[in-house]
Structure formats: C-alpha cells, structure tokens
Design a binder for these strands. Structure first.
Lengths: 202, 202
DNA sequence: GTATAGATACGATACAGTATCGTAATTATA
DNA sequence: TATAATTACGATACTGTATCGTATCTATAC
C-alpha cells in the first residue's frame, strides 16, 4: 500500500498529496455500511458513492474488500465513559447501562452478527471486534469487580470472569430473545450477580 | 406453494407425484449451508448441487431464496434432552452443558450471527430462530427455576428472566470474547446466579 | 394421455477488481 | 517564472465471475 512509504517532513514526495479526509470518510462510510448491511452486502460501489470518491481511490489505499472492512473495524473503539458512582453495584449498573445504549443503537447487534457470521470466511473481522470492542468492555467491568475485590467486597472464590460474561451476555440473550432490552434490566442482573459474588456480611 | 393443495387419498392429482425425500434433503442441505456460509453466501446453485436436484425443483417448492431459508430454519428444533438430576443446581448445570455442546458444534455461533446480521433484510429468519431455538431453550431453564420457586427455593424477588438470560448469554459472551467455552464454565455461572436468587437458609 | 418432475441452458443483474482518460496538486528543474 | 515530472483524483468503462430466477426440453408417474 502506497501509504506505507512513510515520508519525513522535509522529504515530500513529488506529486499530488493524498487528502487525509478522503481516507477518514471512506472508513466511516465502510463501517456504517458494514454494520447496516453486513459484509457480503456492503459493496465497494456503494461505499465509493456514499463517500463521494471513485473506486480506484479506495483501491489505492486498500488492496481488497476484506482489507477495507478490516481497516474500518480497526477504527472502532469503545466510547463508553468511565463510571464512578461510589458503590460497586452503582458502577456495574452504570457501566452496563452505557453498554446497553450502544447495543440498542441502530445496527448495534447486527455488527456482532456480521462478525460471527463471517468467522469462517474473514476471521480477521471477529478478531478485531474482540480486540477493539469486546475486550475493552470486559475490562471496564472487570476493573470494577477487581477494585471491589481489593476492598474485600468479593468472596474469595468469586469467579470474576463468569460474572462479567453473564452481565454482558445477558444483554445479548435478552436481545436475541425479544429484540428489546427493558429498562431496569441491568439493575436486575447486577442484583443477582452481586448476590452471588459479594462477601456476605457476618 | 403447490404443496398447500392438500389432496385426499382418493383424489390424486394428475401428473408425477413429488418425492417427499427430495424436499427433506433440500431443507437439510439448505440449513447446513445457511449455518456454514450465512444467508448471502448460501447459493441456490450449491444447495441444488448438494441435494442432488436441479434449481427448478427447488423453485417449484419455494418461491424464493428467502422462502427456502425460512423454511429451513423452520425445521430446526431444540434437541437437548430434559434433565432431572435431583437438585436445581444440578439441573441448571446439566441443561447448560447440553446447550454448550450445541453452541460448540461447528457453525453453532455462526447461525446466530447470520440471523442477527440479516435482521434488517430478512427479519423472518431471526423471528423463526427466536421461536424455534431461543424460546425453547429459555423455557427449559425457566422451567427448572419455576419448579425451584414452587419448592420455595427461590427468593420472592428473584428475577427469573434476568437469571435465565444471563445463564444463556454468558455462553454467547464467553464465545465472543475468546472463541472457546472452558470446561466448568456452566458450573461457575450457575454458582453465581444461584447465590443471587436462592432463598437463604435461616 | 396428462400433468408434473427433473435437467440443462439462459437472461439479467450485481459486484470485485482493473484499465484508461483528463484534470488537479505538488515538487523539482531549467 | 514556466515547464516537466509525478502522484492523486473522479469519471467512466471494462472484465470476469457469481448468482437469482426463468425458459425449454426430456423423463417419469399415474
């Protein structure tokens, strides 16, 4: 990829410089279409048209459709803010409600569906999704629970990973079951999980 | 669909009768390819070739690709056996381990991914998946917990739905996070949830 | 004989990726 | 300063392939 020829400031290559906004725009459109239409239905013709560029412009930067989709996913990052409510339960609920809002955005679940469906054909997509989205979200919840553990709030045998996966996974399952996530669902889940992992008062 | 013209035994339609095994074979292949390749990549050419039929044979039975995919999904049912281990925790663990085995089969998660990814284009697929697979699995777990409630084992304020969704969803999240579901994961999850919903001994 | 099943071939369309042209934007050179 | 060289760009056309759905023919079951 031509962009790999990294140039020092004082050694500008001759010729017309690339417009960085073009690349950003292409990636943004690609990510949106990937989320909305899935990998197979995302077409380079449509990406180009919506980004206001020509296909050769895209191919000058990315060698293939998979390359572009991969790059688009790589731009994703978890946008959910850190929480600090003063209590572990409060933090868990707040973090999960942030997460819930992301899931309920248009195409929130369909991108997950897409990366799972493409696992056999374009595994890089799932790998990147894990790295950019799944991992950071898990880390937020794990952080909350580890701080609770450090404060002595958790049972010694509490399985933090299982707790985290259930809190996150509860949303997936709820959505799969009905397409909706009712208000208060996060609080209900946290209530149960907290009852299962918290150190009991003696 | 021509098959809807239900005939009485003594009123055979003229012409060559259809081979019922042909239909079964087509549906079986379609379901397999839908699971393995996703909706877009499942092609009628390949379905026909692997079922050993011609495409018009398929189109005589189903009006479109979506119709066939929908019909294939409709053939699915939950194959997991009922469990009765003598204890609620044991039942939950056993049921979840059955479920885990289904998920870990080849393409276990990719079909979920496919129906989610296709939600915007072929929503019938997700609807049927909910009806045929998600609902029955949920019912198994809910049944176990309702029986426990009837025996007075659950707290009065226990949210059975949240518990069920977390138990099922924990697998999805675990898979999404790493592509594996470790042995004993079901038992860990049940331990936490049970700790959160069980009536405490006094 | 009749109507349907099944097989092969086909038309239409979409799409990933490539080629070409004229113009734009920059640096290098005379 | 003007020109040459180079790369980027949009527009357009093209190639080869894949796929859905249909047309046309022969074969089959009753």
């Amino acid at each position: 990829m031509g962009y790999g020829m990294q140039k020092k400031e004082e050694e500008r290559a001759p010729g017309r410089p690339r417009d960085p906004e073009t690349e950003e725009r292409i990636l943004e459109v690609a990510l949106r279409l990937l989320s909305a239409d899935g990998y197979s239905r995302m077409s380079l013709d449509t990406v180009a048209a919506e980004a206001g560029v020509s296909k050769p412009t895209i191919y000058r930067r990315w060698s293939s459709k998979a390359d572009l989709a991969t790059a688009a996913l790589r731009t994703m990052q978890v946008a959910e803010p850190k929480v600090d409510t003063g209590s572990t339960v409060g933090d868990l609920v707040a973090a999960l409600e942030n997460f819930s809002r992301s899931l309920l955005r248009p195409n929130g679940m369909s991108l997950i569906g897409t990366v799972l469906a493409e696992e056999g054909h374009t595994p890089e997509l799932l790998r990147l999704f894990r790295e950019r989205i799944v991992g950071p979200r898990r880390a937020i919840l794990r952080g909350i629970l580890h701080r609770a553990a450090a404060r002595g709030e958790l049972r010694e045998d509490a399985d933090v990973d299982a707790a985290v996966q259930m809190l996150v996974g509860g949303f997936y399952a709820r959505y799969l079951a009905s397409g909706r996530i009712p208000a208060g669902f996060a609080r209900e889940m946290v209530g149960i999980v907290w009852g299962g992992v918290a150190q009991r008062r003696r």
